[in-house]
Design a protein around this nucleic acid. Structure first.
Length: 349
DNA sequence: AAAGGACCCAACCGCTATCTC
DNA sequence: TGAGATAGCGGTTGGGTCCTT
């Protein structure tokens, strides 16, 4: 496993990208696809290393990136998934359409983490700082369920990634069988749409897909996971279940189906709905997880003035504070559910 | 108005997993 | 089969901007 020499070569530019560089990169990828990132800078006339180009593209220039403020819904999702998955930003990003892992990571570090800390919640464990021991009552079952869900989610993401890889190969094979184009196009097998526009021009709601679909976005997955008309058959569901050793794990069959559907169905809406269904499944199985876990933060998010710590510090406004007080016990019980940090999660992590 | 601190985020670094030959 | 190449990921940093005094 060699390390890539990357940007340490003399003469390569580092630091912020100029509009001219962006334009060159965009123009090149629009015409040729990225192909090999290593060779791209030279071909595109950029004095950058391939890695820098790749990051600029994936984190900033890709047309399917949504920029601007995170919605309350997105904040909820990030917090919930962080409780489940820890700092697995790419995994979290798969549940937030059009957001990059880098953006989510930054948002977590600069906003959400601080908000949790302010509220006296450990952003790593998602537990209240005063709470060190798990309640001896029935919560351990729920905690196990949640942990189990996290394992399943991890396995599902891995399966998605594997399917994406497999189908990419199939896709390439299919492409090669039907076209005489060179291999440079293997990562860019569909042409940029005519209405493709330059990103970051003030429109944060662009609906276009990146020409370079990757597994970092669930919405893009259908493009690569079902290239040959493959449907999420029962056999495939069983197969994935088997592959992830979940046959006797107690994962509900309908959840397996949901996961497979979310990774294979075409159409962003369906994917999105499935994701939300999946979250609802978790929530229902953890007895109101979503409602309790996020509504507190939601209230904070909407109010923006809510700055009470859990130890009873002064809140910015009374109603928020009483809202918080009303939910305090519930909040604490929810936090107890997330009793295991990602680092001590079993095997899967 | 200016200085300094806080905040934010794009970009980089370094590691690992996977691919290719 | 193993070594090198490549891509992806998460942690960290640096510089620009905003806010406070």
């Amino acid at each position: 496993m060699g390390r890539s020499p990357c940007c340490d070569k003399a003469g390569l530019k580092k630091g912020p990208w100029t509009p001219e560089e962006d334009q060159k990169l965009l123009a090149y990828i629009e015409d040729h696809g990225h192909g090999s990132w290593r060779s791209l800078p030279e071909k595109a006339g950029l004095q950058r290393c391939g890695k820098s180009c790749r990051l600029r593209w994936t984190n900033y220039l890709r047309p399917d990136i949504k920029r601007g403020k995170f919605t309350v819904q997105e904040e909820q999702t990030i917090i919930q998934l962080h409780a489940l998955l820890g700092n697995r930003w790419s995994a979290i990003a798969t549940h937030l359409a059009k957001r990059t892992d880098n953006e989510i990571k930054n948002y977590w570090n600069t906003h959400l983490k601080k908000r949790l800390v302010k509220m006296g919640i450990d952003p790593v464990t998602h537990k209240h700082k005063n709470e060190t021991l798990l309640s001896p009552t029935g919560q351990s079952k729920n905690a196990a369920t949640l942990s189990h869900m996290a394992q399943w989610e991890s396995a599902r993401l891995e399966a998605e990634a594997r399917l994406a890889r497999e189908s990419k190969l199939l896709h390439l094979q299919h492409y090669q069988n039907n076209n005489n184009n060179n291999l440079d196009k293997q990562c860019f097998t569909h042409k940029t749409p005519a209405n493709w526009t330059k990103p970051n021009d003030g429109n944060g709601d662009q609906q276009l897909e990146s020409p370079t679909s990757t597994v970092t976005s669930s919405e893009n997955l259908p493009l690569v996971t079902r290239p040959l008309g493959m449907e999420p058959t029962e056999n495939r569901i069983k197969s994935i279940n088997r592959e992830n050793n979940n046959e006797s794990s107690g994962i509900p069959a309908n959840m397996v189906e949901l996961a497979v559907t979310s990774s294979t169905s075409s159409g962003a809406t369906l994917v999105k709905d499935s994701e939300h269904d999946w979250m609802r499944q978790i929530n229902s199985q953890t007895e109101g997880f979503e409602e309790g876990f996020t509504s507190l933060l939601l209230a904070d998010s909407i109010g923006r003035g809510f700055s009470a710590s859990v130890t009873g510090a002064v809140a910015a406004n009374g109603s928020d504070y009483s809202y918080y007080e009303d939910n305090k016990n519930y909040w604490n019980s929810i936090l107890n559910l997330v009793d295991s940090s990602p680092s001590d999660s079993p095997t899967m992590f």
